[in-house]
Design a protein around this nucleic acid. Structure first.
Lengths: 215, 215
DNA sequence: ACTGCATGCATTGCATGCAAACAATGCGCG
DNA sequence: CGCGCATTGTTTGCATGCAATGCATGCAGT
């Protein structure tokens, strides 16, 4: 009950845009693509549907394509949860329950992310950015929040794939990362939560602008 | 791709305690219980795992049993999301985007819930309580938040099944419901969010106390 | 030309069979 | 008496086959 190759591979194919939002996918298609029989593919499709990456539709499934309103909703959820995890992480730091090495590693990651962003290595920057946010959430030590965030991140990722544009004001984004780290390091929960929420909502703003004028 | 009888029925069996937290479940067992072949059951099990109701373990799956720390985490997530939805609902009300009938219906539901709680009809009260919270979340019109909350509610529900004790201070709980409704009706987002968060965390306190001294 | 219907086809739902993995058990050997 | 190893049984992973469903296509009748 843990050999989900089909699930993992299909998730990859969706996240990297091979199956873009709105793409219809039948069991047979997917099975052919993965060179497997329909059985494991069916299971994977169910799991993906449960994770909100794919939506059942009459025959077959379609890759989710969040409309602007849904995307806004997703960002609201993400903001609420990242505020929670940032706040929790800061509290843990204040209580001395965070290993100094973890904080340093996180600061390194932030720097690497900023570097990739500045250099315009887009997809790498996106991946690093997600890893940064995920690490922050990990610091909170809330497995359920992390799990939930993974879902939301995936959903947002899929629906913002086409707008893989460089963040308009990436110096701003980098600065916000720095602020967040500072608040966590200082053990200031309130501040960390506030910064995290605003940062997510800022990201939304740019993604929203882009998704407002696509195909 | 939407005929999940197996998924729905297994979910029911887990939520109503037929398969209690920690129960091990093999595909064959479940298939026998549902009188189906293993194939649809496997799909259901994968979906349940994706929804966090069941956890893969070596052979077969076990029904999730959140330890007290995880339960606390789940309540934190729930509180953050219910604060968001309450806040959003209040904002919508303020902007006149909520049908008056919906608010009235919600107040009725709150009254019914209070009645069942007072009368000590425990399982009915639990069900009504969840419906009340769900309706509030629906008012926010955020489908993704609702979806996410459903997951978290399910997870919490499973792990608090054994402690089906009457809420210690149910007058208090009822009062908080009233306060929440008032804040929404008044179109006071900040207040609604605050009340919702505190209400959830209060609930947690009592559930936590109970789960601290179980089997 | 348009509507209604029937036929065919794509696609899903489910069962069954088989092979591989893993765990437990019992056996032989030291 | 204890330890290691082989054997057996359980359970999963996957493929295939078949039946049922619903959609699209084309034909006929108006």
């Amino acid at each position: 009950m843990q050999n989900d190759v089909a699930h993992r591979r299909l998730r990859e194919l969706i996240l990297d845009g091979t199956y873009p939002p709105g793409a219809r996918l039948t069991e047979l298609d997917a099975a052919a693509a993965l060179q497997m029989s329909r059985t494991p593919v069916r299971e994977a499709l169910r799991a993906l549907a449960a994770n909100g990456l794919v939506r059942p539709t009459g025959r077959g499934v379609v890759v989710v394509a969040l409309d602007p309103a849904d995307l806004e909703d997703a960002y609201q959820v993400r903001a609420a949860l990242e505020a929670l995890t940032a706040e929790t992480a800061a509290r843990r730091q204040r209580d001395g329950r965070i290993a100094p090495a973890d904080l340093v590693a996180l600061e390194d990651l932030a720097a690497t992310t900023a570097g990739a962003t500045d250099a315009g290595r887009l997809s790498e920057a996106v991946a690093l950015n997600r890893r940064f946010h995920r690490r922050v959430a990990e610091l909170a030590g809330n497995a359920i929040a992390l799990d939930t965030l993974d879902r939301v991140w995936d959903q947002i990722h899929v629906s913002t794939l086409r707008s893989l544009a460089p963040p308009a004001r990436h110096a701003h984004v980098t600065a916000q990362h720095t602020d967040l780290l500072a608040a966590i390091r200082a053990g200031a929960p309130e501040e960390a939560g506030r910064v995290a929420r605003l940062h997510v909502l800022d990201t939304r703003a740019s993604a929203g602008d882009l998704s407002a004028r696509p195909a």
